[in-house]
Write a protein that binds this DNA or RNA. Structure first.
Length: 477
DNA sequence: CGTTATAGTGCTAGCACTATAACGGTGCCCTAGT
């Protein structure tokens, strides 16, 4: 299909006049029958890539998606665009609905599915009977990020692909280092000769980066920031408890509409809160990493990290949720010495010790006492995939070393006087020129001055007093 | 690992101190099949 035909199809299906960076290239590679690994920055229209490729190819497109809510949103969006032959196949359906869909897979052009569902034997059998034109892995970094210790089914997608007869595959993500790209290709069994990589800069120049070292004054700073900055915004936490308590504090001490979002929030509330946020009824969300994947909101103006993210990938994903409309937005990372404890702990928590691995290899099964243990599952994965004991040990060492380096990178990133953007992108093997204005808190010490809320925000007297003091300090007045 | 919450100790019988325990993230899927 030539550029004209594709562009016509784009305007017919999406009412867009032209492609954005990288999209057409990704589609063309797919049409040639190549597998593609598509790396485009957050918010750059990755779903257009696979949907357009699906339309251009015709036949059945299967999209592996990590979250029920994400599938739901994509299906709704496609239905709004007039697509009738689209469905999400997951546990939200009744048994009857599920079997009805499985009986008539070919009635659909786009099927969204979780890796867990796709791996079920009766489900996979049905798909094997179909001719799959395009196999899509959305948010493909999940393979690397979640695969081993959280959602192991992600690691079996390569097996699935081979059982499906190696359909043309498109894997998309916004954040992947060279190593993670390799990991994705290896897990999916994408061969060098037939795989194209569409890699564009992961930079989001409209997001200005700021880091701050705090001394027991985060709450005060947060209050001042949320009052001062243009909204809406997201505040990320590494603990549910802190998300909860800061949310409460903000409700008490500001006049803003604030809600909390984490894994323990009942799912009806999650849906409601996310919708309210999308509809601009909430100004601030206090969230853990549970919030955000697939949240495609144009006007998010800031992302504050109350705690430090465990790795640059998560950081880039999370800050990438702002500024989708292309307008200047601010990412603030607050750090207090000692904050690295939480990621350190969490990292240690779900990876097996050598003792556990040894025990599994000796007993050739998961010891009964460890049957519920995540760490033991990881050990079992090594054993059942025929890793030698030494290889399993190596993996564990490698894993913990990587985690260590990622955390160390974040600490260096916070402290460096060098350009933050340059530093962050260097981690993703990118070289950029720093931009002295509106780039980061190293390049411009008065960064925050651009972001003042233009409307007067009513705030309580105590807040104002503190705020003037902190602002003077920040702006070195 | 280090902070915070709770329980326990001891003379100041209600408060100050110390010892111990708990906490710290992400989500699919599961009833019924040829």
């Amino acid at each position: 299909m030539d550029t004209n035909e594709l562009t016509n199809l784009l305007s017919e299906k999406f009412q867009f006049a032209s492609f954005r960076l990288g999209q057409e290239e990704a589609i063309q590679e797919t049409l040639k029958g190549n597998d593609t690994l598509v790396l485009l920055p957050t918010g750059s229209g990755k779903s257009v890539c696979y949907q357009m490729a699906g339309y251009a190819l015709g036949g059945l497109t299967v999209i592996v998606s990590p979250l029920l809510s994400l599938m739901h949103d994509q299906v709704e969006k496609m239905k709004q665009q007039g697509e009738k032959r689209v469905v999400a196949l997951n546990s939200m359906l009744t048994y009857q609905e599920k079997t009805a869909i499985l009986k008539r897979l070919s009635a659909y052009q786009f099927i969204f599915i979780s890796p867990e569902m796709l791996l079920q034997e009766n489900v996979l059998r049905k798909f094997r009977q179909e001719n799959i034109s395009l196999f899509v892995i959305d948010e493909a970094h999940c393979i690397s990020q979640w695969g081993i210790d959280f959602r192991p089914e992600y690691l079996s997608l390569g097996t699935v692909r081979s059982k499906l007869g190696f359909p043309t595959t498109m894997a998309l993500t916004a954040t992947a280092t060279e190593a993670i790209q390799q990991d994705i290709k290896t897990v999916l069994g994408m061969k060098k000769e037939t795989t194209s990589e569409i890699v564009y800069s992961m930079d989001r120049p409209e997001i200005e980066l700021m880091t701050e070292i705090c001394q027991r004054d985060k709450d005060e700073r947060i209050i001042n920031y949320v009052n001062y900055l243009q909204k809406p915004g997201i505040i990320y936490f590494s603990s549910k408890k802190m998300a909860q308590s800061v949310s409460k504090m903000l409700k008490d001490k500001t006049d803003l509409a604030v809600e909390v979002y984490h894994a323990d929030v009942p799912s009806e509330d999650k849906v409601k809160i996310q919708q309210q946020f999308l509809d601009d009824e909430l100004q601030v969300i206090c969230a853990t990493s549970a919030f955000g994947m697939g949240v495609d909101k144009q006007n998010i103006r800031f992302v504050i990290h109350y705690h430090l993210p465990a790795n640059p990938e998560s950081y880039l994903q999370e800050i990438g949720r702002c500024a989708r409309d292309g307008k200047a937005s601010l990412a603030i990372l607050l750090y207090e010495p000692g904050d690295e404890r939480i990621p350190l702990y969490l990292q240690a928590d779900n990876f097996p010790s050598k003792e556990i691995i040894h025990q599994i290899y000796m007993e050739r099964k998961i010891p009964h006492a460890l049957i519920e243990n995540v760490q033991a599952q990881v050990g079992w994965y090594y054993f059942s995939n025929h890793f030698t004991l030494e290889e399993a040990y190596d993996r564990v060492d490698q894993y913990s070393e990587t985690k260590q380096q990622q955390l160390q990178f974040m600490l260096d990133f916070i402290r460096t006087a060098d350009c933050k953007r340059k530093t962050l992108l260097a981690y993703f093997d990118e070289t950029i020129k720093s931009n002295s204005n509106g780039c980061c808190s190293s390049c411009n010490e008065q960064l925050i001055a651009h972001f003042k809320e233009t409307k007067m925000v009513k705030s309580k007297a105590t807040v104002n007093e503190n705020w003037q003091f902190v602002m003077k300090k920040l702006l070195k007045l």
